[in-house]
Structures are given as C-alpha cells and as structure tokens.
C-alpha cells in the first residue's frame, strides 16, 4: 500500500512530462511543478538544464527555496536577455506554466478574466506565454481542476493552442508543441486526430466521471482509462526528504 499524497502523485506525473527532453531547459512554475521538474532531473532525465531562478544556471538540483544555497553549483550566466536569445528563441526549452483557464485545444489564459480592455479580474498578464507556446514545448499545471478552469472558450488567449497554431500554417507552427496538462485529478495530452484534449490517466481515487463533470468541454478518453502511476520508493524519498521536506506541495494540492 502506498501512502503517497495526491500532490506527490502529481509531482511524479509532472516529472514524467520532462522524461524524454534530454538536454533542454526545464522551466516549471508553481510549487508542485518545481518539485516535479527537479525530480525528473534527479532521476530519469539527468541532462535537463535549469536555472537558479535569477540569472545563473544551476548545475546541481536544489531543494525548494534552496536555489541560492552554498551547495548549488552555478553554471552559465543566464540574465533575462540571454534567456530569450539563447533559450526561448532557440527552442531549447520545455516550460510548464499554470493556467487560469484552458480549452479543448490547449489555448491557455492566465492574463485576465473578462474582456482585455477592461477585465473583471486582472491576473498575471500575457507574460511570456505567447512566445513560449510558439517557440518551444509547453505543458500546463492546474491545481484546481473545475469546469471554470477547463472551459469551452478562454476569455483571452495568452498561450496558443492547437487550433490557432494550425491556422498559422506549418512554417510558423513548426515548434508549437503543447505536450501535457497535469491537474489535481488527472493527466491529459492532445494526441487525438484533431489535437483536442484527451484524458490519459486519472489519479488514484479519482473516477473518469469526476473528471468529465469538472471539465467544461467534451473530453476525449478511451473506454478504459489507466491510473496515474504512484511514486517509487526512491521518488518518495527524494520528494519528502530532499526536495520538499516541509511538504509545501500538499498545500498547493490538498487531498
């Protein structure tokens, strides 16, 4: 019997998103994505490249909050302009961003709720999402999966989805690659004929119906949907004893 928490299962599912990336900059925003991305680097994706969150590459993996600790080996200089020049626009990055809204084709919004000219709620803004999604692989993390987040149509498109990328034509969309979405209920991808979202796995103790009820659009899924895998003993140990000894991810996903 595993005593893994939902957040730990999500962290492993996030790590899995970065499994085949090789020598790529792993950028993960949010507490659980940070733990998940670093877990991948500590286990099956050792070549992942990461920063200390400021202006330098971190060549050893720090725990949450330990980015500037004395044990972290600093590598190349990575100020914001080199981040654009050397990483984003050379396509050598996989970012996991949050989504306040996401639709069936992976259009993401964390800019604002309501019309852009006078929003009901100003959120983060577009930030780098338009450039990220058109230049390199992107995944999303949603800690609160509801029909208000998984919506038929997002209010504002900050991250570009598959339908909009297709309209841009092959040349412009050749680096566009929305890889996966990990929520507190399951794991999703876009590997369907029309690149609409598909349920890949449900987390233990979550039913397919529960996911469908909390999704505001028609979600593709197989007849039998597997369960998201549990953390291995090594992964549990790395999460609990090294990456996140305070268990902060369990506050982000409290189940």
């Amino acid at each position: 019997m595993s005593d893994a928490t939902r957040a730990e299962i999500c962290a492993v599912a996030i790590a899995e998103c970065f499994r085949d990336d090789g020598e790529t900059l792993m950028s993960a925003f949010g507490t659980t994505p940070t733990v998940g991305g670093r877990l991948a680097k500590l286990t099956f994706s050792p070549d992942l490249f990461m920063t200390d969150g400021t202006a330098t590459a971190a060549e050893t993996v720090p725990p949450l909050g330990g980015e500037h600790g004395p044990d972290v080996v600093k590598g190349a200089w990575m100020p914001f302009r080199l981040f654009f020049d050397n990483v984003v626009w050379t396509t050598r990055r996989h970012a996991m961003m949050m989504a306040s809204q996401i639709d069936r084709f992976g259009n993401q919004n964390f800019a604002c709720i309501g019309p852009h000219e006078k929003p009901k709620a100003q959120l983060l803004g577009m930030r780098g999402a338009p450039g990220n999604t058109i230049y390199h692989r992107t995944s999303y993390f949603v800690p609160n999966h509801t029909a208000k987040v998984f919506v038929e149509k997002v209010d504002v498109v900050s991250g570009v989805g598959y339908d909009r990328a297709a309209e841009l034509g092959e040349a412009t969309s050749r680096y566009h690659d929305i890889h996966r979405v990990v929520s507190n209920l399951g794991v999703f991808d876009f590997e369907t004929p029309d690149h609409s979202m598909r349920l890949v796995s449900v987390h233990p103790d979550v039913s397919v119906d529960q996911v469908l009820e909390n999704t505001g659009f028609e979600l593709a899924h197989d007849q039998v949907v597997p369960e998201t895998r549990l953390p291995s003993d090594e992964e549990s140990h790395l999460i609990r004893d090294f990456l996140d000894p305070k268990g902060l991810i369990n506050k982000e996903i409290p189940v």
Partner: peptide, 29 residues
C-alpha cells in the same frame, strides 16, 4: 509578450521601422 517588447526596443535602437517576430502570433497579443 515579454520578448516582443525587447524586439520593439531593439528595432528602435537600430533605427529600423520594425523587426520580424514570431512570438505573439496566434495569441490575443
């Protein structure tokens, strides 16, 4: 988009009317 702002400043810096940029395409920018 964050990168577009850099490109707009760079165009002005180099006294060009514009610079081509892919970032922003497809989004509500």
């Amino acid at each position: 988009d964050e990168g577009m702002l850099q490109w707009g400043l760079r165009a002005a810096a180099h006294k060009l009317p514009f610079l081509p940029v892919r970032a922003g395409l497809g989004s509500d920018v």
